[in-house]
Structure formats: C-alpha cells, structure tokens
C-alpha cells in the first residue's frame, strides 16, 4: 500500500442534476462533491441508496455528463464524457470500472476467454500471440483457469463472474479502478476472497481504488480514506478508521449503528444517536 502522495484523481465541485418528471423540479443527485485520490491509494465512498455514489462513479468513468464541476485524472481534464471509441480508449487506460451485478455485466453469449481477449486487443497492438499471452496473464492474476475461459457466463458462479469483470477492467492497465458495489451481490465468504484478491492486485500493480459500498465492514477492510455521502453531498471525509470509529456526523453514526450485532435491535440503533436527528442535514 504505497502512496507516493501524488494525486491521481481530483474532483472539484462536481454536481449532477437530472430533469424532474413533468413540471417537477430537477433532482440534484450529486451536489458539490470534492475529493482527491492519491496514486496507489484506496478511497471508499459510503452512503445509503440514492445518496449519489453511483452517479458520481458514472460521471468519473464518463457515462454521465456532470452538470458542473471538474474531473482531473493525472492532471488531465476528463469532465466531458468521451465521444469517439478512441477517446473512450484513452480515458479507459486511465480509469476503469467494475459494476455491481456480475450477472448483467457480462455478455451472456460470449465465452470468458473471448470477452477478455476482446478487451485486451483494444489496448494491445500486436500479434495474436501477444493478446492470448496477456489474456492468460490476466486470468492468472484473478484466478481463472482454462476451463473457465472456455465457459459462457451462465456456467460460472457470481464470484467467478466478478473475477472476470475485474480481469476485463484490468486489461487496459488503468491507473484507477472504480468498484461500484462490486462485492455487494456476493455472499460473505466469496466477498472475502474477492477483497483479498483486490488487496493483492493493488499491492502488485500500484493501482488506485475508488471503492463504492454501503457495507462498512467492507469499506474498513479495503480503503485508506472514506467519504460519507448523503443526499448527493459529502458529509464526512477522512481516514477510514477515524470516520468509522469516531464519526463526527450524526448520519455516519446512524450508518455505523445500523450494522446488526449480537443484541442489536433497530431501536438500539436509533437510541445510539442520543437525540441527534440524522434526518437533519446540518450536524
């Protein structure tokens, strides 16, 4: 976990509003988000559903156009989404993403091997041998064997599919990898395997993670810093242990006490707030 202090991703005043239905007001999904990600670092974004985590990720990867704000990756402005395949390719070599649902993020008619070599051949210019070497390398990195490379997604488990999605994202050798609830669809033991794999990959490649999750245990395990989002805004930001153990914001305390433990009841979670109303934004 070596962070050189070099900032690889800087987000300034990022906002996104979606037009409301009919004559309704626009919905502000992300509101003035600012943060930095150090090269080789791992930043967690936590928050409940609808807090703007995924919209932030989609703007960073270029699937959504920010309403205001700036996105700087390696000092280069990437605020506007790519338009051409070439622009996508260039952006894709800097930042990649692993989506939440391993069942819909792979083409169900494509074998795993073909999926990986398609991604590799976009970025590796060379003879066919080089592509297949790189595919094998990626498969080995995430722990997929030859038999799985010949299979279609249907024949793989959720954890195996997520390994494929990670390998595909790494094909471009990006500097930043966004993991958008990437382990949330998996059961706990598989989650642990994938998290170990991710830690391992970061150790080896020096890649930076932007880890989006609603699961505090997962955030604690994989991130250095954490950002808490609510209603599109950042309400707390700091080193992960501090944010999770000494939360300053009432909302973070609610998130923390919402994790079931022995003897836990929903009432005890609310009681732990000691009077502070988490539904109030100002705390």
């Amino acid at each position: 976990m070596t962070t050189t202090g070099e900032v690889i991703l800087r987000v300034e005043g990022l906002s996104k509003s979606f037009p409301g239905r009919g004559r309704g007001h626009d919905v502000l999904a992300v509101d003035g988000v600012e943060f930095e990600l150090a090269a080789g670092g791992s930043l967690g974004i936590v928050g409940e559903s609808g807090s703007g985590k995924t919209t932030t990720a989609r703007m960073l990867i270029g699937l959504e156009r920010p309403t205001t704000g700036r996105i700087l990756i390696e000092g280069v402005d990437h605020t506007t989404p790519a338009r051409t395949a070439r622009q996508w390719r260039e952006r894709g070599r800097r930042i990649q993403i692993v989506f939440q649902d391993p069942y819909t993020s792979l083409d169900r008619h494509q074998t795993i091997g073909s999926c990986l070599s398609e991604a590799v051949s976009v970025h590796v210019r060379g003879r066919a041998g080089e592509v297949s070497d790189r595919v094998e390398e990626l498969a080995a990195l995430v722990g997929l064997d030859d038999r799985q490379l010949r299979a279609v997604p249907r024949a793989l488990s959720g954890g195996q599919r997520q390994r494929v999605a990670i390998a595909r994202a790494l094909a471009a050798e990006p500097r930043i990898l966004i993991l958008d609830e990437a382990v949330s669809a998996l059961d706990v033991s598989i989650q642990a395997q994938i998290l170990n794999l991710l830690a391992d990959i970061r150790e080896r490649t020096g890649i930076s993670y932007l880890f989006i999750s609603h699961d505090l245990a997962v955030i604690r395990q994989i991130t250095d810093d954490t950002l808490v989002m609510r209603h599109g805004r950042v309400v707390e930001h700091g080193p992960t242990p501090r944010v999770l153990d000494e939360p300053q914001h009432a909302y973070t305390r609610l998130l923390r006490s919402s994790v079931p433990r022995p003897g836990w009841t929903p009432e005890s979670a609310l009681a732990a707030l000691s009077g502070a109303d988490p539904t109030e934004d100002d705390a």
Binding site: A82, A85, W88, R91, Q96, F99, D101, S105, R108
Partner: peptide, 25 residues
C-alpha cells in the same frame, strides 16, 4: 445493460458492440 457500458468504457467501437454483442442477444 451494464455489459454494454463496460464495452464502451473499454473503448470498443459502437459498430462492433452492435454487431458482436447486441445482435447475438
């Protein structure tokens, strides 16, 4: 579907995505 978004993010050409991925599906 997310798999199409994943292909775009890779920088795969739209025509190729349509012919090699959407059409078979």
């Amino acid at each position: 579907m997310p798999y199409i978004a994943a292909l775009r993010v890779q920088g795969i050409h739209g025509l190729s995505i349509c012919v090699r991925h959407i059409l078979p599906n």
